[in-house]
Write a protein that binds this DNA or RNA. Structure first.
Lengths: 248, 248
DNA sequence: ATTACTAAAACCCGAGTAG
DNA sequence: TCTACTCGGGTTTTAGTAA
């Protein structure tokens, strides 16, 4: 059963010899789906893997020898299930890929704290421009994403090659402030898309708000979007979001 | 760059032809790690993949033809990076595995609500037994995990084959209750380990509290553990935890 | 050093077929 | 039907080697 547990030896890495077997297991898991076992002949398995019945039969044997699956051959009824070890093999790859993806994609970690960005959205002189130039009325707050050093460097480098959406500065007096007319500087924005790592289908158009960071923490990027993103993506601090820059 | 985005065609599934190429890309990603590109000769790549230099060279060519990597050959300096398409290929498998794992492992969704379980831990007559028989003093509350129909069925079936830790019933009067001595029924527990799907290294010994469910919602399992699990695993409602039953 | 071609060797697949 | 064996043929890998 894939459900019992123990501390048997779990390999650290997939054996290069076993690529086709690994993929065989993978496809088997996929079609087993949420059932605990499956009736499958070697012919069917062959169809699934795009190989002959003979090869599929050999795969079954190898998978069983490796302890990744277990078979019960009762007459013409062939029941296959994934063993705990088999499940661990899948888990191994999953974890490995997760780690890889956090490196090769720009991934930001949702971080607590109102950035300066929230200040900009709240000022009418900026807000009207955001609304018009970004193409959406932004939520009056920003989502702070913390990037790794590398990811932050990659992002900055990437932004350099892009034409920013310029939010013009202006001089004016906010009525709530007792000070006289002060000047508000220009801000740059960049279109982007956000998505959860595990569900790329739900992509949200957003914008990176590139403000001159004065007393801002390092490697933090502030995001503007129409909805309240923490609700939209069901986020909590520490969750990861993928940032994709739009192709211009 | 793996960081720019577009809507180029992303394949739905890994082509059976490309198993070895897929693994080549995978290993390449792994060793690139958190750098954006890597210096790698075909000899080194061969060592990495456990194949000859010639085969590694062919792999490089194929990966490049498929648009999964990009190479710059400047004299004897060979720089390789993963393209957006290559990153998407990895992402595809990641998502696929995530889905598989949620089916073949017993995974519970963290669910709001005090179950009856919390009641048991709060009663001294039970608590002292929990402490002694489970081997840890449980946190005075339970974590509710909601399972899928299948997972719940699998779990129950699995528990059937196990010897429960019996928490004896007793008759006694709780001092805070004005009622006379009442009787408290026996409860069954089962050792288990909990872990986040994405970090199996952090496993927490815990126990499934198997109470007779009276007005309990369906498919809910209550968990006892020493720490407050929502903090320990940094959980919020909707997060998933893997339940592994200990090998007895 | 490298990459990558050609040709031989090794390996794997699937047809045929037995149980 | 089914699984799974043997073996011929095709594919892939590697050794040798050129650039």
């Amino acid at each position: 059963m894939a459900n019992t547990s123990g501390n048997e030896s779990v390999p650290e890495e997939i054996d290069p010899e076993n690529y086709s077997n690994w993929f065989a297991l993978y496809h088997l898991c996929k079609t087993i789906g949420d059932k605990k076992s499956i009736h499958m002949s070697s012919t069917e398995f062959g169809r699934l893997l795009n190989v002959s019945q003979q090869t599929a039969s050999r795969r079954f044997q190898t998978l069983e020898e490796m302890g990744w699956i277990q078979r019960k051959l009762m007459g013409n009824d062939h029941i296959v299930r994934i063993t705990k070890q088999g499940a661990d093999i899948m888990l191994l790859m999953y974890k490995s890929l997760k780690k890889i993806l956090e490196n090769i994609l720009i991934v930001g970690v949702v971080t607590e704290g109102m950035g300066e960005g929230a200040f900009y959205v709240s000022i009418k002189g900026y807000y009207e421009q955001f609304k018009e130039k970004l193409g959406f009325p932004p939520y009056k707050g920003t989502l702070n994403l913390k990037l790794s050093d590398l990811n932050y460097a990659l992002l900055r480098e990437n932004l350099k090659t892009r034409i920013p959406i310029i939010i013009e500065g202006f001089t004016g007096g906010e009525k709530d402030m007792q000070s006289a007319a002060r000047s508000y500087g220009a801000v740059r924005c960049y279109d982007c898309y956000l998505s959860r790592l595990d569900d790329a289908s739900k992509k949200k158009k957003a914008a990176i708000l590139d403000i001159e960071r004065t007393h801002h923490k390092k490697n933090i990027v502030e995001i503007l979007a129409k909805p309240y993103l923490r609700n939209y993506f069901n986020l909590k601090d520490g969750d990861r979001l993928r940032i994709e820059l739009s192709t211009s």
